[in-house]
Design a protein around this nucleic acid. Structure first.
Lengths: 153, 153
DNA sequence: CAGTCATGTTTGAATTTTCAAGTGACACCG
DNA sequence: CGGTGTCACTTGAAAATTCAAACATGACTG
């Protein structure tokens, strides 16, 4: 058994800061969405992804990937959004195994109302704080780490 | 009502990538901890912060700040850790309003088992993927965004 | 020194998420 | 075509989290 390797002081400080960000930024965005639109971060993104789609509809499993969530969680979540009238579900006419989630008119309207406030907060708390170079670096960092996560399984 | 501002293409791409990271990195770390040590990310950090403390004890409210969590959640969580024998609680002898969470011997031993695997994963998925310059930039980014979140309330 | 107040923490109920098992549609194999 | 299998999704129960209210201790006030 080899001596386990630990983080250097700089690495630890950077990691701690980043972890704090990991916790605080989503919380800050959630709180705005919750307050102004009674939506969670993920619910917002489910609606947003649907609205980007040609027919405002998408398979549950695709949607799960896009929203970075598990199918089961999505299924419960879409059930709730359905009860609110924002989404409805239909079996895919071409293949009954698939279910399509469809953004309703009411859902679209609701999203349109919620979006500007959310985007404003993303700009205010995140985008506008960073200079273009930092944003570029962060983008590269994200891709690198994500690639590593993929390959590590 | 002014035209709401939106993100540029580059900004959007960077934001999307970063959001994905925000979702995937904690999930990847959690899954290792869960698998190898039956601890959630936050539970691990609660134990870790306690172990860093002089007497391996800390007030609940301080601990909540360090672990970036709300007091209520922490209280439930410490209750669970207590049932597992890793932590115990005592009222602060100097001021009965405060509660101190105390890491037990068993909790310390358990953490000592869990730590190397977790650290190895942080190194593997995160630290080792980035060069020192990127890590420095990320550290600066984290501090800037966190400062903005603080000041925005 | 009783009464009110503020603060730190806990508690229980409601909501959400996770986990494991269940269901239904299609594909394939004999 | 009848099984058997697999895939996409749903469901229900268990676990965790959030939310609001309760509680306890000490501080301040008249």
């Amino acid at each position: 058994m080899s001596e386990p390797r630990w983080l250097t002081g700089d690495q630890l400080a950077a990691w701690r800061g980043f972890m704090k960000l990991l916790q605080r930024l989503p919380a800050a965005l959630e709180s705005q969405l919750q307050q102004d639109s009674k939506l969670s971060f993920i619910e917002y993104h489910v609606l947003a992804h649907l609205s980007d789609q040609p027919e405002r509809r998408m398979r549950m499993s695709e949607l799960a990937v896009m929203a970075n969530t598990e199918l089961s969680r999505l299924s419960h979540m879409v059930g709730r959004l359905e009860r609110r009238g924002f989404v409805r579900r239909e079996p895919d006419p071409h293949n009954g195994r698939y279910t399509q989630a469809i953004l309703t008119e009411a859902g679209y309207a609701y999203l349109a109302e919620a979006a500007p406030g959310h985007v404003a907060r993303v700009l205010d708390l995140f985008i506008d704080v960073l200079d273009p170079d930092e944003l570029r670096t962060l983008h590269r960092i994200s891709d690198k780490v994500l690639a590593r996560i993929e390959s590590a399984g």
